[in-house]
Deep mutational scan, measured.
Amino acid sequence: VTTYKLVINGKTLKGETTTKAVDAETSEKAFKQYANDNGVDGVWTYDDATKTFTVTEMV
């Protein structure tokens, strides 16, 4: 189990959250659901070296 981080650069929501998951794909699903639940829709990137997802909304 690995800890993954999500950085949110939204128009109205900014911040970070973490989750523990067995792999990046599992954490990505959880993070995308979290973003969707909070009305964040944007461009996703992933940095495997830091286990960090970033979602950026276009303004």
Rank of each mutant, 00 (worst) to 15 (best):
T56H: 07
T26K: 06
K51L: 09
T45K: 06
V7F: 07
Y46Q: 01
K11F: 13
Q33F: 05
G42W: 06
T26C: 07
D48P: 14
G39H: 09
K14C: 13
Y46F: 06
V59D: 14
T19A: 09
K29L: 11
V22Q: 10
K14Q: 11
N9Y: 13
E28K: 11
Y4R: 00
E16G: 08
G10M: 14
V55T: 02
Q33D: 08
N9G: 04
N38E: 07
T3K: 07
Y4T: 02
A35D: 00
Y34A: 02
K32V: 07
K51V: 03
K51M: 06
G10T: 15
G42N: 00
V7R: 05
T56D: 09
K32S: 03
K29V: 09
E25T: 10
D23P: 00
L6C: 06
G39W: 04
T17L: 15
D23W: 03
G42Q: 01
F53A: 02
V43F: 10
K51S: 04
F53W: 12
V40N: 01
T2R: 09
G39Q: 08
V40Y: 05
E28C: 15
Y34N: 01
E57D: 08
T18F: 15
D47N: 09
V43S: 08
D37P: 01
D47M: 03
T52N: 01
N36P: 01
K32N: 03
T56W: 09
T3Q: 09
D23Y: 03
T56S: 08
N38A: 12
K11Y: 11
G15C: 15
Y34Q: 02
E25W: 10
I8L: 08
E57L: 07
N36V: 14
A24S: 09
K5A: 04
K51Q: 09
G39F: 06
T3Y: 07
D48R: 06
G15Y: 15
G15S: 12
Y46D: 00
D23T: 06
G10Y: 06
V59K: 09
K32A: 04
K32H: 09
K20S: 12
T12K: 09
K29M: 10
A24E: 06
E16K: 06
K29R: 13
L13Y: 14
N38Q: 14
M58R: 11
I8K: 00
E57V: 09
Q33I: 10
A21T: 05
V7S: 04
N38M: 15
G10I: 13
A49M: 11
T26L: 06
D37S: 10
T54I: 09
D47Q: 04
E57G: 05
T52A: 03
E28V: 06
E25V: 12
L13S: 08
E28T: 04
T17K: 11
E25Q: 13
E25R: 10
T17Y: 15
S27P: 04
V55N: 02
K5Q: 05
V43I: 13
T56I: 08
A30F: 15
T17D: 03
Y46G: 01
A49F: 10
D48M: 07
F31A: 01
K5N: 05
D23K: 04
Y46N: 00
T54C: 06
K14N: 08
Q33K: 14
D48A: 13
K51G: 04
V55C: 09
W44F: 03
Y4G: 03
D41C: 13
A30H: 14
Y4N: 02
K5T: 14
V40D: 01
V55Y: 03
K14Y: 10
T52D: 00
V55E: 00
T45M: 08
A30T: 14
F53Q: 00
S27R: 01
D23S: 09
A49I: 10
K14F: 10
V59C: 14
T26Y: 05
F31P: 02
T17W: 15
D41N: 13
D37W: 06
T50C: 05
A30R: 12
T45L: 06
V43D: 08
Y34R: 00
A49V: 11
V22T: 12
A35R: 01
T50M: 05
A21I: 03
D48I: 07
K14A: 07
Y34V: 05
T18S: 11
K11H: 13
K32T: 04
V22I: 12
Q33N: 08
T54H: 06
F31V: 01
A24H: 11
T3D: 07
K11L: 15
A24Y: 15
V22E: 10
T2Q: 13
K14S: 10
G10R: 03
E16Q: 10
T19Y: 15
A21H: 04
V7I: 14
V40I: 15
E25C: 13
A49T: 12
T50E: 06
A35L: 11
K51C: 06
L13D: 05
N38C: 13
G10N: 05
N36F: 14
I8R: 00
E16M: 10
E16W: 13
D37N: 09
K51H: 11
A30P: 01
Q33W: 05
V55K: 01
L6T: 02
T45I: 08
D41S: 13
T26V: 08
G15V: 14
G39D: 08
G10Q: 05
K20A: 11
Y46I: 00
T2A: 11
G15N: 08
V1S: 09
A49R: 10
V22A: 11
G10D: 03
E57K: 03
K5D: 02
F31T: 01
K29Q: 10
A21R: 03
D47L: 03
V40R: 01
T52E: 03
V55R: 00
G42M: 02
D37A: 11
S27Q: 04
T3P: 04
T50I: 06
V59Q: 13
D23F: 04
F53H: 03
T45W: 06
K5Y: 15
D37C: 10
T2C: 14
G42P: 00
V1A: 10
D47H: 05
G15W: 15
V7C: 06
T2I: 14
K20M: 14
S27Y: 02
D23V: 02
T54Y: 12
D41P: 03
V43Y: 10
E16A: 07
E57T: 07
T26H: 09
V43H: 09
A21W: 03
I8P: 00
V22Y: 12
V22W: 11
T17C: 15
K29A: 11
T19V: 14
T2H: 15
N36E: 14
T18M: 09
K11E: 09
Q33T: 08
T19R: 07
E16T: 13
S27E: 01
E28S: 08
K11P: 10
V1M: 15
V22M: 12
Q33E: 10
V40C: 05
V40K: 02
K51N: 08
I8G: 00
N38K: 14
K29E: 07
T3L: 12
T45E: 11
V40M: 06
T45P: 00
K51P: 00
G15L: 15
Y4D: 03
G10K: 04
T12R: 07
T12Y: 14
N9V: 14
L6I: 03
M58K: 10
A24D: 04
T56L: 05
T18A: 07
D23N: 12
I8Q: 00
K5I: 12
D47G: 01
K20V: 14
E25Y: 12
T52W: 00
K32L: 07
F31M: 03
G39I: 03
Y34H: 04
G39L: 05
T50W: 04
T19I: 15
K11V: 14
D47W: 03
E16Y: 13
K20I: 14
T50N: 08
N9R: 10
T12Q: 10
K51I: 02
K32W: 07
W44M: 03
V1D: 10
A21P: 01
Y46C: 02
E57H: 05
A49N: 10
F53L: 02
Y34K: 02
V22N: 09
F53G: 00
I8F: 07
V40S: 02
L13G: 09
V43Q: 09
T19H: 14
T19S: 08
L6H: 02
T3W: 10
V43E: 10
T50L: 07
W44R: 00
V40H: 04
Y34M: 04
F31G: 00
A49W: 07
T56Y: 08
E57Y: 07
A21K: 03
V59N: 12
W44L: 02
D41I: 14
M58G: 11
S27H: 01
K51A: 05
T3F: 06
N36C: 14
F53C: 03
V43A: 07
